[in-house]
Design a protein around this nucleic acid. Structure first.
Length: 997
DNA sequence: CCCCAACCGTA
DNA sequence: GTACGGTTGGGGG
């Protein structure tokens, strides 16, 4: 265990009693064995282990243990004979469940810890303090007040039934004293359940007040004479010794001898078959299905484990936990799974101990050749049929679906229909049968009805169908599978359906194959299934003859839509085990899938733009561009299309005979801004004018003219769409409109930002990471002077210049710093002498000297670059610090420039990608962090621009919001990664984006 | 109507 | 030198 790790300690005994009393009694169907507490226990563990949303618990465990009481006889009994004396024997139904719960823990592949002579609480205390000493974080899964003395900034408690975290402030709020004083408080108050005597007449409130006044119990007992209230004073003096004894009873021991050390608590991967074997033995159907879906096992292929249990009066025997002799166990494995009752043996025999990679390969092979029969797709036109499909979805626990709409804008489009896909449970995945259907709901007739196209005949009523579908789409026990689910999520939200519990094969493929090609359903289908699906164009036509999807004939639409559901489900069967085999499930579940809802909500909120500002700017830009146009024609001696690089090149380098610079890849003279600037620098007037004209027309056409067209007719706001799966590195992209390239560098451009405004009574808050990519570089390449500079908060570019050129930071010429800054950026981009020379307008040889000097000064960076290239060549991909992969299939190209390009990209990807992962983590957690501070209705995240988040915040909530946003962003890498450099975030509020940034 | 090249806005 | 998306002009079908 190391710093930054996170240990989860489950108070198993506490939970058994709580589960037993809080839940209705439950007995096993086959024989009436009471299993209510076992069921509650298993559900809690499963929820804890799979809480993919990362919001309620907020952390990822690296180590995990479930702790139990060994027996009633502990050291406390020796201290005080009456300790827990009035506790009655456990209820009869609970007795057989103690052993089963330990079996359950082992079935979950979790350490099951107990120590003779100590209570679970003491073991928890010992582990917690040991882990804390190493610098790890600890979460104790319990709400027992006896454990609250352990809470520190690094040790939290978590009440999993109330989904509530308990930290230092929560203890203070509840008991009026900080955790370290809980021992004294409990000693005074006593505990009638455990028979801790305490001091008569002192309750929690009085105790807290006395501790506040006197500091601690010893001081209080010493100076008890000072207490004014007669009765209280006498009680305290008379029971001083009893209070001291009570303290020894409530104080948890942190020196329990442990059979299993912290290393032994490392969280092992789930063993799906083993767990399913146990759950089936218990008869827990719902949880079995859930686990099977998550582990991608077919529960039908796994037999129930044989779990021995004695009940009906007899005490559970100690031999339940005793290991079977090795010989017997293997004999049992060879013959039948039932002979010795070990669930592990039973599970592993049945599945033949297939490795995840083998399962993934078998699936891929199967679906690559499976026939796709479109003739069995059906159209759902009856409620009874729809109900059958929904019922079947509950049976299989998996439902593929897709929403078809009249246009591609989920914020505006009308729903046309819904396609559904179901695994045929008797056969899938071995048989690969998938049923698929289309439910048309909003198709219109295209005939010449003067009243306009009415609803096509023979469709179920939208309301009736959606009321039924809402149940299953919102039910977390049925996993919805689709491709690009953000679209359906947003569309259906407008129909009051919030899809819960889903997998998106587009995102699954992106995690597996970013950089290897597109993630459209078409390309996935071709790559994995060897099948070319129908295209939208084939179905709806294109251009002038193209139809909106709701105008397409229903039977035509049906085949297209049902095929999408079918293919999505096939892809899910292929990709889910592949994620497990490649160990990328975490990346998918933590960095990818939860972003779907986060981004959908941001897109839905949108941002207000001031159309008047843009319209005024457009007018100004038009006038100024027109004026420059006249000057250009005058200087050129003729009219021409200034926006045509071809015509412009003819004028500049042909007619006027200016010296040409760079060529484009098609051999034309380049007219890039850089070339024109260089000509302007040596005194030519026309190139300067062209540069100015281009700037003005660019701002006008791309921003001031285009943005108002994106204002939504109802919301009056601009709703961008984020693409989660279109970059190789893990960054998002923003389209229609792209709000990630709004100008900022020039004063003219900045004016466009003033048009992005907050709604009345609110401000925009912009929070951006400072130098995040250089910090990531300092972390991954582990460069001591860079780490030091960031730790000290000094000017990183000036420091670099100072180290390289030996110039003191004080009074450094700006040109020296500028060069160092260019080099720092160059490093992030996989530097080349050619590129750096270009950037700084210096000779290649001089740029090469700079790079050499840089590597001499920071040899770790050269090592990082070489290691990264070698890794990329060996594996074909590189990884971010969170394990996201970026693939570079052309890294070994025989073309030297192609190869070099791939190498630079591979060097850049871990840096850019890690930064992208960090802000993703911040975004996924942001909603929970704001809600925890009570700000969920006052502060809303609207936009992401790679290293910046933009919020809209109520005026009176800004002071509270800023620290929440800043700390969520700055701590976003934790606890998965403890960065070697601090992350820094700057944030400010203003009424428009220009001033907020 | 579709696609590509060139250019340029952002991080 | 990295990563994107949008606009324009222009060529081909």
């Amino acid at each position: 265990m190391k710093k930054g790790d996170h240990l989860f300690l489950v108070d198993g005994s506490g939970f058994i009693f709580r589960a037993f009393h809080a839940l209705p009694p439950l007995t096993r169907k086959s024989d009436g064995l009471p299993v209510g507490a076992v069921s509650g226990f298993c559900n809690m563990l499963w929820k804890l282990l799979t809480d993919a949303r990362d919001t309620s618990v907020g952390v990822t465990p690296t180590h995990f243990a479930v702790i139990f009481d060994y027996s009633a006889k502990t050291f406390r009994k020796d201290l005080y004979d009456s300790y827990k004396a009035n506790r009655s024997a456990p209820p009869e139904e609970l007795v057989p469940q103690f052993g089963l719960i330990r079996e359950a823990t082992r079935a979950f592949n979790l350490p099951c810890i107990e120590t003779e002579g100590f209570e679970a609480d003491d073991i928890i205390a010992t582990y917690a303090r040991q882990a804390e000493a190493i610098g790890a974080d600890v979460t104790i899964i319990s709400s027992d007040k006896d454990l609250m003395q352990l809470v520190t900034p690094n040790v939290h408690m978590y009440d999993s039934m109330k989904d509530k975290q308990i930290g230092v402030p929560d203890v203070i709020e509840k008991w009026g004293v900080p955790p370290e004083k809980m021992i004294d408080l409990q000693a005074m108050v006593g505990d009638s359940v455990d028979n801790v005597p305490g001091i008569p007449g002192i309750g929690p409130k009085t105790a807290a007040q006395l501790l506040e006044e006197f500091g601690d119990l010893d001081t209080l007992l010493e100076r008890a004479g000072e207490i004014k209230q007669v009765k209280r004073r006498e009680n305290i003096i008379a029971h001083a010794e009893q209070a001291r004894l009570s303290r020894r009873l409530v104080q948890l021991r942190t020196d329990v001898p442990l059979d299993v050390d912290l290393e032994g608590l490392i969280l092992e991967p789930q063993n799906g078959p083993k767990l399913i074997g146990f759950l089936k033995a218990m008869g827990f159907g719902t949880l079995t299905r859930r686990v099977a879906a998550a582990c991608d096992c077919n529960a039908d292929e796994i037999d129930a484990a044989v779990v021995e249990v004695e009940w009906g009066g007899a005490a559970h025997g100690p031999d339940l936990d005793a290991p079977a002799p090795a010989g017997e166990a293997s004999a049992a494995n060879a013959s039948a799974p039932a002979s010795n009752g070990k669930p592990a043996a039973a599970g592993s025999v049945i599945v033949g101990e297939a490795r995840p990679a083998d399962l993934a390969q078998a699936r891929a092979d199967f679906y690559a050749t499976a026939k796709i029969d479109k003739s069995c797709y059906i159209t759902i036109r009856d409620v009874e049929v729809l109900d059958d499909w929904i019922r079947a979805a509950y049976e299989t626990g998996v439902l593929a679906f897709d929403a078809e709409a009249a246009s591609i804008d989920p914020m505006q489009a009308e729903l046309a229909g819904i396609s559904l896909g179901l695994p045929d449970n008797a056969h899938t995945p071995a048989g690969g049968e998938i049923r698929s259907a289309y439910l048309p709901l909003g198709h219109k007739t295209g005939d010449g009805d003067l009243l306009g196209g009415g609803l096509a005949e023979n469709q179920l009523s939208m309301k009736e169908a959606l009321d039924r579908l809402k149940i299953v789409l919102e039910d977390p026990s049925v996993l919805k599978v689709g491709h690009n689910m953000k679209f359906a999520y947003l569309l259906l939200k407008r129909y009051s359906i919030v899809v819960q519990s889903y997998d998106d094969v587009m995102l699954m493929s992106y995690v597996l194959e970013a950089g290897k090609g597109g993630q459209t359903l078409d390309s996935l289908s071709e790559r994995w299934l060897g099948h070319v699906p129908m295209t939208f164009k084939e179905v709806a036509g294109s251009g002038k003859a193209g139809l909106a999807f709701d105008m397409v004939d229903i039977e035509r639409a049906m085949t297209y839509a049902a095929e999408k559901a079918d293919l999505s489900l096939r892809m899910w069967f292929v990709l889910k085990p592949r994620l497990v085999a490649e160990r990328l499930t975490r990346v998918y579940e933590r960095l990818e899938r939860p972003m779907l809802a986060t981004l959908a909500e941001m897109e839905e909120r949108g941002i207000t733009i001031d159309r008047q500002i843009l319209s005024r700017l457009s007018g100004e830009l038009a006038q100024r561009a027109a004026a420059i146009e006249d000057e250009i024609y005058h200087l050129a001696g003729e009219k021409f299309t200034i926006g045509s690089p071809k015509q412009l090149g003819d004028i500049l380098f042909g007619k006027l005979g200016l010296p040409g610079g760079a060529k484009t890849k098609t051999g034309q003279w380049s007219t890039s801004a850089q070339v024109l600037e260089e000509l302007a620098a040596v005194g030519h007037e026309l190139p300067r004018k062209i540069v100015d004209w281009r700037q003005l027309t660019k701002l006008k056409s791309t921003y001031t003219d285009a943005l108002p067209g994106y204002v939504h007719p109802q919301t009056k706001r601009v709703h961008t769409s984020y693409s989660l799966a279109s970059t190789t590195t893990g960054r998002l992209s923003s389209v229609e409109p792209n709000l990630q390239n709004i100008p900022i560098r020039t004063t003219e451009g900045r004016k466009i930002r003033t048009a992005f405004i907050s709604t009345p009574g609110h401000k925009l808050v912009s929070a951006d990471y400072s130098q995040i990519e250089l910090r990531v570089l300092a972390h991954v390449a582990d460069i001591p002077p860079l780490r030091q500079a960031f730790a000290d908060g000094v000017d990183i570019h000036a420091m670099t210049a100072s180290e390289m050129f030996g110039v003191p930071v004080e009074g450094m010429p700006s040109e020296v710093r500028r060069r160092a800054k260019a080099i720092n950026f160059g490093i992030i981009y996989g530097i080349s002498a050619f590129g750096l020379a270009n950037q700084l307008s210096i000779e290649r040889s001089e740029a090469g000297d700079y790079i050499k000097k840089y590597f001499e000064r920071f040899p770790g960076i050269r090592d990082y670059m070489e290691n990264t290239k070698a890794f990329a060549r060996e594996h074909g991909y590189v990884e971010t610090i969170f394990g996201r992969r970026a693939h570079y299939p052309d890294i070994k190209s025989s073309n030297p420039s192609v190869r070099a390009f791939n190498e630079r990209a591979a060097i850049n990807a871990p840096i850019q990608g890690s930064a992208a992962d960090i802000i993703r983590r911040a975004m996924v957690r942001m909603e929970g962090a704001l809600a925890k501070a009570g700000l969920q209705h006052k502060a809303r995240m609207l936009l992401q621009v790679h290293d910046e988040l933009i919020f809209e915040v109520e005026d009176d909530a800004i002071d509270e919001t800023l620290p929440v946003v800043i700390s969520t962003m700055e701590n976003a890498a934790m606890p998965a990664i403890a960065m070697r450099v601090p992350l820094k975030v700057d944030a400010r509020a203003a009424s428009n984006w220009d001033e907020a940034h």
